[in-house]
């Protein structure tokens, strides 16, 4: 994707800051995007290997399922941060957003696979869980929102859809991330801090988009 790097409309306009973001943006333009996939996805086999070898505690299925889910959420949050970073601070990482988003999707897929194949283990029980358990229904809805986004995260789809329709479709990210973090809040016993922090961060990142551009 060739998008012109424009300084953040709401970015602080001091000369020093302009120099800093300029340097950052120039550097990032020279970097390839493949390391995001490589280093982003490396933890997937790594944690699987650890789980296989009893290095993730005595309940490795649960540990792996939670780890993949958490990594998915972390990459989703990172993807959401790209736009506010550009608008508020003038730091442009948009080149990496596709890689970040796809990495998040692969973790969602891994999370879902561990849940279905290792945790629940039966097709009937999987379906029953999706229908009966609200937090699973919600998680599944989040996954379904992400699916068309992952499938259209390539240049060919972008050209086919045209930038306007493509961008509109990719607004599904917002409900997907909200559903994903609501899924996290709901699945734990009681009200725990960690899922609420993620939910708060996501709501915050979404709210930043509502700040009017100058």
């Amino acid at each position: 994707m060739t998008q012109r790097i424009t300084p953040g409309a709401n970015a602080p306009m001091t000369p020093l800051w302009a120099a800093v973001t300029d340097a950052l943006n120039t550097a990032s333009r020279r970097l390839p995007t493949w390391p995001v996939y490589l280093f982003g996805l490396l933890p997937m086999p790594w944690f699987f290997w650890k789980a296989l070898n009893g290095e993730m505690g005595v309940n490795p299925i649960e540990a792996l399922e939670h780890r993949y889910g958490l990594l998915a959420l972390q990459f989703l949050v990172a993807g959401l941060a790209v736009t506010p970073l550009r608008r508020m601070l003038g730091v442009n990482l948009i080149r990496f957003r596709r890689a970040i988003g796809l990495t998040a999707f692969f973790y969602v897929l891994a999370h879902l696979s561990v849940w279905a194949l290792l945790d629940v283990q039966s097709l009937a029980a999987i379906w029953k869980d999706i229908v009966k358990r609200p937090y699973i229904t919600i998680g599944m809805a989040g996954f379904l929102c992400l699916l068309p986004l992952a499938l259209t995260s390539n240049n060919w789809s972008l050209r086919r859809l045209g930038p306007l329709r493509w961008r509109r479709l990719h607004m599904l990210t917002y409900p997907a991330v909200l559903l994903g973090s609501a899924h996290f809040v709901m699945l734990v016993k009681g009200w725990q801090t960690e899922p609420i922090l993620y939910f708060g961060a996501i709501v915050g990142l979404l709210m930043l988009r509502l700040v009017p551009r100058r």
């Binding site: 789980a51 296989l52 009893g54 005595v58 309940n59 490795p60 299925i61 649960e62 792996l64 290792l118 945790d119 029980a125 029953k128 869980d129 358990r133 609200p134 937090y135 709901m186 699945l187």
Partner: peptide
């Protein structure tokens, strides 16, 4: 939020 029909015996591995 979840079924109680079955359980996982801890210690059985991945």
């Amino acid at each position: 939020r979840w079924s109680q029909a079955s359980e996982r015996r801890v210690g059985g591995g991945l």
